[in-house]
Nucleic acid binder design. Sequence first.
DNA 1: TATTGTTATACTCTATAACTATA
DNA 2: TATAGTTATAGAGTATAACAATA
Lengths: 162, 162
Amino acid sequence: MIGKTRSGSVAAVIPAADDGIAMGLLPALVGYHVRQAQMAIFADFDAALGELGVSPGIFALLVIIDANPGLKQTLLADAARLDRSTLVPALDKLEQRRLVERRAAPGDRRSNGIFLTADGADLLNAARRAVRRHETRLARDFGPGERAALIALLSRIFPEHR
Amino acid sequence: MIGKTRSGSVAAVIPAADDGIAMGLLPALVGYHVRQAQMAIFADFDAALGELGVSPGIFALLVIIDANPGLKQTLLADAARLDRSTLVPALDKLEQRRLVERRAAPGDRRSNGIFLTADGADLLNAARRAVRRHETRLARDFGPGERAALIALLSRIFPEHR
DNA sequence: TATTGTTATACTCTATAACTATA
DNA sequence: TATAGTTATAGAGTATAACAATA
């Protein structure tokens, strides 16, 4: 039974062991478990999609581009939560791989519209299948509704920062 | 009861829009929400503990050192899930800040035992208080049991990778 | 003046491989 | 031979500030 303090909601220290090494209060922290879960998820994602040359960040970009053909770079950066200067080299690499294209936007000669190429659409389809299998592995021990419950709880963390 | 929210949590699973930008299947993926949650958590953690010069990784190191005085570097690296070569510069910085000490281990002249200094213990205590407040903010909209439910669900993701 | 994309730069975090000194 | 710590190096991933072209 995890305790609750009178003034806060952080549980008491559980001296969980990692091969006999005490982890202090870390196992009682949501932030710690989110980090551990993310590292495990990234490892499986990379094992599944590394061969395709698709990282979680690249996958998100391809999905957003596919769902919004012709999106301008600044809006794409906002949707992917990247600075627009961070997006530039990412798009450069995708363009070199002939997965996306920058096309001059009609009506505003400052902007580019971003589009998936046919190769990009093919790669994205393969990546989506691999991601669905990855997500199934991720939640393979979950009962009905637990996967949705996890997503619901996660999306209630600091909604003001989204 | 997991998954019931005052603001309609199920909507978060439906491919929603980010200012009119379609996000495709991303909002249906656990991995996506773990990543978004982590970014939000890091932002709040940094706002709360950046002044102390304590990042989530540094905090974890200090907690583990405090809970295991004299731990050897290799075991500390394992507990923190870092390569031993990654730990070296991290400890260098903590030692320069006089927060930790490497002491020759008795009986094996290859090894160091890692200890918190008095300054390190003081900083850790301040950091722990700030982290408890941070964790309370993190889960401030959660009902009874939801915080524990979230931790339980997260720790069931890829346990074979832990 | 403001916005779009770009560049130059830098910083954090992390890992691999090779080295040294011990064991 | 094997292990503990270190070094050199490299690669993601990210950001800030300043710039040119355009609005």
